[in-house]
């Protein structure tokens, strides 16, 4: 059974485009789902609708099979059993770490609450800081307290609203992995809101890409990356070069200004106008490859070389990025030959 289910949920703030537009999605038991999209795409509003901080205009929201909003039902936030972690990780300034974590345990006996708090502080590695006040902690520590606080009452679902965006980059990556472990250890289902594809890829099992209030595509990370269904998804999830063309069944490829781009699997009808997305890993350096281009820049990254190559394309030219093994000796201005890996080309109809 789905932990959380949204059915055709819409919400708008005043006239104009809806903030959330007919969104449907399901969160399964123990799963971590990321809502990924640029700012203003409606992902945070979706989260607030689930938590009960906003009312949907249309549609239904179910938590553990119970309708919490829609159809004339309304369950207030405190009765939804949903934990929430905010971007600004608000903590109660006049309470210690221990008291903050215990805040949601008011229904437990003192002893039980203390045991639960100790357990959580251990898990987030903050046992030595139990009696400090929030202002005596670093940003990363405060965020861990906020997560422990939300996890304490064992909510069936926890909602994370850009939880790491106020932290510096190094800390962010470390904390993402910690939080994933923590959620999995507690067998907690979670929905994460993020505008950072790396964050979504690290933390989530499934990702829903949102744009202008609607879900563009939902699926596993690799699926979205390699088989984007829209140009927006392709461009949002990492570097890509997008070309228009006509699918040609007999050539097993798409005829573009660049030439025929081969692709695996017939996803379109012959003669159909399609878009292809070329990622850096769609290209390989191959002396016998059919594509030739001038190297524009070479960046040695240690374990590999990142190349930018300019290829003639129709009347003009196009710059594609690719990676090569670190032993490749090449300089800007050199001419290189490439092949395109059919399996790694995404065709968007």
């Amino acid at each position: 059974m789905a932990r959380v289910e949204l059915q055709e949920v819409s919400k708008s703030f005043g006239p104009g485009a809806a903030a959330v537009d007919r969104v449907s999605l399901s969160l399964y038991d123990g799963e971590i789902l990321a809502l990924l999209g640029p700012s203003g795409c409606g992902k945070t509003t979706t989260l607030r609708l689930i938590a009960g901080f906003e009312w949907p205009d249309h549609g239904r929201i179910l938590i553990d099979g119970r309708v919490v909003a829609g159809d004339g039902h309304w369950v207030s936030p405190e009765r939804r059993g949903v934990g929430m972690v905010f971007q600004d990780y608000p903590l109660f300034p006049h309470r210690t770490v221990r008291q903050n974590v215990a805040f949601g345990l008011h229904r437990l006996s003192k002893k039980e609450a203390a045991r639960r708090v100790d357990e959580l502080l251990e898990q987030v590695g903050l046992t030595p800081y139990a009696d400090r006040y929030p202002h005596q902690l670093s940003g990363g520590q405060q965020q861990r307290v906020a997560i422990a606080q939300a996890l304490a009452p064992r909510p069936s679902v926890i909602l994370l609203d850009e939880p790491f965006s106020n932290l510096d980059a190094a800390l962010r990556q470390e904390l993402r992995l910690q939080v994933r472990e923590l959620l999995k250890a507690n067998r907690t289902s979670a929905i994460l809101v993020s505008h950072d594809q790396k964050e979504a890829f690290t933390l989530a099992d499934r990702i829903a890409v949102m744009r202008q209030g609607r879900i563009e595509q939902i699926g596993m990370a690799y699926e979205l990356y390699s088989r984007p269904r829209t140009r927006f998804v392709a461009e949002f999830l990492g570097h890509t070069a997008v070309l228009e063309g006509v699918f040609q069944e007999e050539k097993k490829g798409v005829l573009t200004d660049l030439g025929v781009v081969p692709c695996a699997g017939a996803l379109a009808a012959s003669g159909e106008h399609v878009t292809v997305s070329l990622r850096p890993d769609s290209l390989v350096v191959d002396p016998h490859g059919p594509f030739r281009g001038a190297v524009e820049s070479v960046v040695h990254e240690g374990d590999r070389v990142e190349l930018a190559v300019r290829l003639p394309c129709g009347a003009g030219s196009i710059t594609l990025r690719t990676y090569a093994p670190p032993d490749l000796v090449v300089r800007p201005g050199d001419t290189l030959a490439f092949a395109i890996v059919p399996d790694r080309v995404a065709v968007i109809s």
């Binding site: 905010f86 008011h106 939300a150 009452p153």
Partner: peptide
């Protein structure tokens, strides 16, 4: 959000 957190932790 402090008030929101308290709501989601079960406070009326």
């Amino acid at each position: 959000n402090l008030e929101n957190v308290a709501r989601s932790l079960g406070y009326t």
